[in-house]
Design a protein around this nucleic acid. Structure first.
Lengths: 256, 256
DNA sequence: CGCCAAATTGACCGAGCTCAAAACGAGTGG
DNA sequence: CCACTCGTTTTGAGCTCGGTCAATTTGGCG
């Protein structure tokens, strides 16, 4: 099932110029001539194991990271020991920006799967950004997109219904996966139910029940961490607050 | 009670160099010589009325804003009409960064009180930031601090207890006010109970009851929008999850 | 096959939402 | 100074969603 290792190595050696994610990542909108400048400072792409950490709370800001493949979670541990999941990170989405404010990381970034990451020393990045207006602009845009995701997350947490949150999560994840060239409806979840629960601010049992309910309503098909979105339209409706109609008529809805 | 208008005008005409907030705002850490560059692009400080908007959802990113005095709220209206309050903004805290990701604002910024704001054209700001490393650094820091506040907000929303959220809100607000030179314990709330509720993801009645409970426990004294923090230590404890001890012994606690 | 972590399912209960009414406070006009 | 209005805040009573605790079931792996 996995691509042969040789291919990976070839891919990893190639710089941003060849990267399939370059349109989504820092290089987006940067002229090929300038791109080599960025390429020079991107550190050796390295492989990380599931559970491995890119940084921990308190670590000073050295680099920002982007996954080429795989998935990560960022966790913030409050003083009373509660672990809140701040975000899940798919390939092309920057990690490590949580240290911008204070210079030290507030979160830890943990690999959910095996993955390959690019590491960009932050000082070098800002130095080059000052010289390349297009890179400076793109850096701000990427930071802004990260804030937009936090934004969405906050709206989700403030929105009341548990079922809405779950639908929103699945729908959003599907869209993000589609955005990086994967199937939007056939999803292999990289995270546990507990991770999802702590991301959504719910109990893990509630997440499990929510999945079950969506399955009963023929909106999704769940089997462990494999989720198939059967009725994307209905899922989107549920995600945006419209409650599903009373049960007696529901059977025919998804089918025809 | 209000400072004479003449004084305000003098203050407003003076640039960042003279501003009492300069240590907290964009100018922080910038050499006086360079500061004039920033000063040149900061548009005429203008007075805004309560309820006035600095920008609306969909407006393209023209400027970022900082209040010199007064207070603002930023609201995100979801497609189903729910209005979520994303943040409250005190003097020295940048507004308008929500448009960084897409180039268009997602929120609207509404004045809660009469206020004076500085407006900084964003293109000019980035252009100068590219030339002044210290400004670029400070810009990123300010953006990061804004993300940190969102961060705190998310943790608050995911944290379960309503009383915790309310205590955290009051404690945090006190600290932020203290930070800009105001009293940390004698607070005139610029926002309504409903605003607070929509910020905390609660019903407004729950906020009111929470205030009442804190007052019964002699932690705060409430009279409408005037809140006095009587026991800052206890408030901080409540904010960080420790439940208050059983009622029979509580009377003596705050007093001695 | 057995073991252990992850996930599901069930039963119960309480925090907080909803609906409704009353109290309060700031203006406004007589 | 009082009467009246309108918006905000407080208070009350009931109900529901989702958290908690506990028991199974499932799935991955040695």
């Amino acid at each position: 099932m996995a691509t042969p290792l040789v291919f990976d190595l070839v891919q990893l050696r190639r710089g941003c110029t060849q990267c399939t994610l370059r349109q989504l990542c820092l290089p987006a909108g940067i002229a090929p001539a300038d791109l080599s400048r960025l390429d020079e400072i991107v550190r050796r792409r390295r492989a990380v194991q599931p559970g491995e950490r890119l940084f921990r709370p308190g670590d000073s800001l050295e680099s920002v990271y982007v996954a080429r493949d795989g998935a990560f979670k960022t966790i913030s541990t409050s003083e009373d020991g509660e672990e809140q999941i701040m975000g899940f990170h798919l390939p092309g989405e920057l990690m490590g920006l949580d240290a911008l404010g204070s210079g030290a990381h507030r979160c830890e970034a943990v690999a959910l799967t095996s993955a390959n990451v690019c590491e960009v020393p932050f000082d070098d990045l800002t130095a080059i950004a000052a010289m390349l207006p297009s890179l400076q602009q793109q850096l701000l845009r990427v930071i802004g997109q990260s804030a937009d995701r936090d934004h969405d997350h906050m709206e989700m947490l403030a929105k009341r219904q548990a079922n809405e949150r779950i639908a929103l999560f699945l729908h959003g994840l599907g869209e993000r996966l589609h955005h990086i060239g994967m199937s939007r409806s056939d999803i292999r979840l990289p995270m546990s139910r507990e991770d999802i629960a702590r991301f959504l601010g719910l109990a893990l049992e509630t997440v499990s029940r929510g999945f079950g309910r969506l399955q009963d309503d023929r909106v999704i098909a769940v089997q462990g961490r494999h989720v198939e979105i059967l009725d994307s339209v209905e899922l989107a409706r549920l995600a945006h607050g419209q409650e599903s109609p009373p049960p007696q008529h529901r059977m025919g809805r998804g089918a025809r």
